[in-house]
Design a protein around this nucleic acid. Structure first.
Lengths: 213, 213
DNA sequence: GCCTGTGAAGGATTTCACAGCC
DNA sequence: GGCTGTGAAATCCTTCACAGGC
């Protein structure tokens, strides 16, 4: 029914939602695609077209109601509820993720943490006890978890991903520097700062030979 | 001359390079677009087309020389040299970035760290002294820095980005949850795990109503 | 026989441009 | 007059399919 909404469109919706939340905080009640587009460096036509996949939320001559559109987007994206997250890997990176305060206020709760290192098992990160990775499957089958976060070394990541997928997880946020293989019905997003840097260097390679004035 | 290579293509090259490095470690000397594609979930045609923007690196009937192609890609991307990085913001996130061991081995050296909090200035993160953000401009004009990493709160990020850009930085890795405005000749990559999660929820919203069995 | 490099075809996404409404 | 929603056009990107070389 919701037939074929491009993934690029879905990826932009959270950006719109965030901007609308900021506008609401500023006390704005109405916004046009023009104004919103300027804030986000997106063309007004793109915003309108994106939204048109889901309905008609604006008013001609006025624009969009900020809170109304925000609520709609949150509903479309499923941000109007809480999501349970399991984190695998509590090395330096995993700990930083567990202690990062940005997920909770957005409704993403880290309810379980796993590691394969016996020295880590039983310790506590951000008030959650670290379980043995061996318990992963059992735990996931007994507790509702929506999203898996992978923060293990690259060589162990595919195995972890496979176990998450086999346990029924349909969304994975992967911090390991590799591209996991998953079935088509599993969503994956990779957080890979090194790749990001390695693509920027292509663009700055040209000019610079010391930034003398 | 290098006229118009799509950005999506550039973004895939580091992925190919990483896979080739892994193949080299496994002792493979030759690889076909078919085989490489299977590892990366990319079609062989795409790999060949991407590479064709830069030259003819393969041999019919054989495939590509692993080390040869890797060297070519590294050269194209500018990964065959060291890059100087400045980090702005040493809160929890900034510290985690400074202490993350993944940049250095890829040639990205954090040579300077800045923060606006007087309590942080003068302390040391990962063997680099934290400087006052006020010194940002002066420092960048006197020292060669290629890439700026932004790890400050969202409300301060645009200002930091502006200062980096004004000081001549042409590449920015942004960890703040906002979309910075930059001139066309500045490359930006955003690391935004919350946005990543918020787009995945759209896809898992449908089904799940408790993962019974 | 296997595999690259590449025009051409096909598909996806963005932008245009305008009818219609407030 | 300002602004949405949207077909149609334009652009961008991917895939096909095959000539040509090893």
């Amino acid at each position: 029914m919701t037939l074929e909404i491009p993934e690029v469109v879905i990826n932009r919706l959270p950006v719109y939602a965030r901007a609308l939340a900021a506008l609401a905080m500023d006390g704005e009640t109405v916004v046009s695609s023009q104004t919103l587009g300027e804030r986000l460096d997106v063309t007004p036509a793109q915003i309108r077209k994106d939204l048109s996949y889901f309905g008609r939320f604006g008013k001609q001559g006025r624009g969009y109601n900020v809170l109304g559109l925000l609520a709609k987007l949150r509903e479309i994206l499923g941000l109007d509820r809480k999501w349970q997250v399991a984190l695998v890997g509590v090395g330096r990176l995993g700990q930083a993720i567990a202690e990062y305060g940005g997920f909770e206020p957005q409704g993403f709760q880290i309810v379980a943490v796993f590691d394969s290192d016996p020295a880590a098992v039983g310790t506590t990160v951000n008030e959650v006890v670290v379980r043995d990775s061996e318990e992963l499957d059992t735990f996931l089958r007994q507790n509702p978890v929506d999203i898996g976060v992978v923060a293990v070394p690259a060589h162990a990541a595919q195995q972890v991903v496979d176990r998450l997928v086999n346990a029924g997880i349909r969304a994975i946020l992967n911090y390991a520097p590799m591209m996991p293989h998953v079935p088509l019905d599993v969503a994956v997003r990779n957080i890979d700062p090194v790749l990001a840097m390695q693509s920027m260097t292509f663009y700055i390679k040209r000019q610079d030979l010391t930034g003398a004035k």
